[in-house]
């Protein structure tokens, strides 16, 4: 596979390592009353859809950036690559407003 890094352009996927569903950006609050259940769901349950999947990849053998990649799990077609840092920052902003 080729991952089109937003800053570096196309790179072979062997430079990257895979973590999992981008929902892992959404770490729950430990203060919530339902924290144990929230963390259980966060850590263990996955949608695992046969179509589009937003997922986290790490450019381990490149610039060490974490990416959020939108990829079709059946065709492997990649339609979007974002910097995870930017995605997370936007999530934080959105949660403030």
């Amino acid at each position: 596979m080729i991952i089109n890094h937003p800053l570096l352009g196309p790179r072979d996927s062997s430079e990257f390592s895979y973590l999992g569903d981008a929902a892992l950006l959404n770490r729950p609050s430990a203060k919530s009353e339902t924290a144990t259940d929230d963390f259980y769901r966060y850590q263990y349950l996955r949608d695992n859809p046969p179509g589009e999947h937003r997922e986290l990849w790490y450019h381990e053998h490149g610039d060490r950036s974490w990416l959020v990649i939108t990829r079709n799990m059946t065709t492997h077609a990649i339609t979007k690559v974002e910097l995870a840092r930017d995605v997370k920052r936007a999530m934080i902003e959105a949660s403030k407003s």
């Binding site: 790179r11 062997s14 430079e15 053998h61 490149g62």
Partner: peptide, 16 residues
């Protein structure tokens, strides 16, 4: 593994 022919002078990248 990178396409160095197409790369500009002053290209620098980390890879394997």
């Amino acid at each position: 593994p990178l396409d160095l022919r197409a790369a500009q002078i002053g290209f620098a990248a980390r890879t394997m």
